[in-house]
Amino acid sequence: MPLFLDLHNLPDGVTSAHVAEMHQADLDIEHEYGCRGLTYWCDEKRKTAFCLIEAPSKEALIELHENAHGAVPTRIIEVNDTIVESFLGRIEDPEKSKDVSLNIINDPAFRTLMVVKIRHTTFKANEISTIKAALRGYTTAIKALVAEHKGRVVRHEGDTFLISFDSVTNAIHSGIQIQRAYNAMVTPDLEFAIGISAGTPVTEKDGIFEDTIQIAEYLSDVAKSGFSVSTAVKDLFESENQNKPLSKEYTIAVLNTIDEEFMTVLMTYTEKIWSKTTITVSDFENNLGYSKSKLYRTMMNLVGKSPNIFLRDFRLKKALELLKKERSNISEVAYSTGFSSPAYFSKCFHKKYGILPSNFKWNV
């Protein structure tokens, strides 16, 4: 049976006790609608509640809520139980305390998400096995540091980690420790990029935490600092730590609202066009609404790269991913990643990574 997570915007004055009563009302009649309520999250501060319910359809879930207590959800998305547990830590109600009739769960679903990407700077001849060994070492260190700071690895694919934390403080401290681990292991051919954002699981997007994941991904992809956070994360960290500012001992860049908006527009457009060979800087200027000089200044300030170099490096990263999978030849990789010719692609790849794509062998 499908599993759904829904969002309720709470009116003023509604508390976790009221939400617990609504949850119990759902449980009392759920069998009449073929549903099974698993658990809920309540955030009095942000005036939101989220219900996790197995139901034959969204319509059945809405009917259950309407007839149980009348509170119709603002938004419903279909989810996977494993992913929900990875992000939120549970998929069932916590055990009820003894001698308590109502199971009041004052647990917000707001989470801080961290994306860690391990970037390759060069591939020296005959050293791929050494790089892969270093990657295994970093993977072990990252998982240990995440667990130490009460985080959960939601997804680990290739050189990218998506991690969920209940608190911003734990996420920031975990990121700082990951930086320290990298500095201590000294692998010049690899470097970390960390992006941290925060948000709720259900928005206008179809996927769970989709908006928050996107911002964390963009921060790790775009911002020139190796460790970047959103303004919301900075504010939350300071509120959790009695207005103590982020440590100046580490390079943690905070993007302001204007930079975040530009970053989102830039990445949304880039993801649409990166594989097209006809795209030029003029297309970026026209679609982002920036003059040539303003686009260059903004890119250099935020990304540390000109528009041309940014697009070239984005394509090379995609090409590297394809070459690792060894499912295409050099010509196919070149054209599918937006390069005008295999020769030009090989030249750019060699300049970026220090090895010709024809000599790159990852699975050896």
Rank of each mutant, 00 (worst) to 15 (best):
M22C: 05
E260D: 12
E157P: 00
S358D: 04
D211F: 01
T160V: 08
L236C: 13
F4K: 07
Q24K: 05
Y218M: 13
P201T: 11
I91K: 03
S129M: 11
N308M: 12
A232S: 01
D189R: 11
L145V: 01
K352T: 00
D81W: 04
A141F: 01
D99P: 07
T257Y: 00
I118Q: 02
V116F: 07
T130F: 10
T74C: 10
N256F: 06
S346C: 06
F165Q: 12
S328D: 03
D189I: 05
D206S: 09
A193C: 10
P11H: 14
K58S: 00
M300I: 04
D99I: 06
K47S: 00
V281H: 08
M185V: 09
T280M: 01
T337G: 03
A171N: 07
R315A: 07
I53G: 01
E321I: 00
P245A: 14
A334V: 12
G34V: 01
E260Y: 10
Y182G: 05
G226P: 00
V202G: 14
I196L: 07
R152G: 01
V115W: 06
N243L: 08
V254Y: 06
Q24E: 02
P188C: 12
F110V: 12
V115H: 06
E191A: 08
A147F: 02
K132G: 04
R111E: 07
F209M: 11
V254H: 05
L61V: 03
L7N: 07
F4S: 04
R180K: 11
H120G: 00
I163E: 03
V116M: 06
E63C: 14
I309E: 10
T251L: 04
L255T: 15
K352A: 07
V72S: 13
V233S: 00
N126H: 02
S164Y: 09
F237W: 10
T160R: 03
E148T: 13
T251V: 00
A133T: 02
F227C: 04
Q242P: 02
T39D: 13
